[in-house]
């Protein structure tokens, strides 16, 4: 499951199942805590990575539970970068229903609200979501809550 590990980076490869979300959150929390992120930031990281992973599991796994998702975590002195890589195509999962974000739209919205950078890259073999959180930045730059 853990493919690569050091004090500053870790890589997980997991079966594509939502039961693994709590494990992913625990791993990200432990790594980010050891890299000096505060309690608020840890929570925001957990939510964002869990949303990215849930998205990968539910929409980026053509073989269902036999597919895999990969989570890479890398600490720098001033930030943490997390990549969630799946085996599916991203564009089919940008849902808007009646002008409102749906369930999945909310997950993407949460990621962008909680992280300093969210990059989504679609490749031939899968989709890569890259999340970056800068350390000790003022909590939540979201000025106004969005609509549901």
């Amino acid at each position: 499951m853990v493919k690569k590990e050091s004090a500053l980076e870790k890589e997980l490869r997991l079966n594509s199942h939502t039961k693994n979300l709590s494990l992913i959150r625990e791993e990200v929390e432990a790594m980010a805590a050891s890299c000096g992120f505060n309690e608020n930031e840890l929570y925001q990281l957990k939510v964002a990575v869990s949303e990215a992973a849930a998205n990968a599991i539910e929409h980026g796994s053509p073989q269902g539970e036999q597919s895999h998702i990969k989570v890479s975590i890398e600490c720098d002195p001033d930030k943490i970068s997390i990549e969630v890589i799946d085996e599916g195509v991203f564009k089919a999962r940008l849902p808007v229903t009646n002008g409102r974000p749906s369930h999945r739209g909310r997950g993407i919205f949460l990621m962008t609200a909680l992280m300093d950078e969210v990059n989504i890259t679609e490749g031939l073999t899968g989709t890569r979501v890259r999340l970056v959180k800068v350390k000790n930045k003022a909590a939540l730059d979201v000025a106004e809550p969005s609509t549901v």
Binding site: R106, F109, L110, L140, V142, P145, S146, V148
Partner: peptide, 15 residues
């Protein structure tokens, strides 16, 4: 407080 913050971000507390 963290759960409340998530609910605020998505705007559910306005309903």
């Amino acid at each position: 407080k963290n759960v409340l913050k998530i609910l605020e971000i998505v705007g559910i507390t306005k309903l």
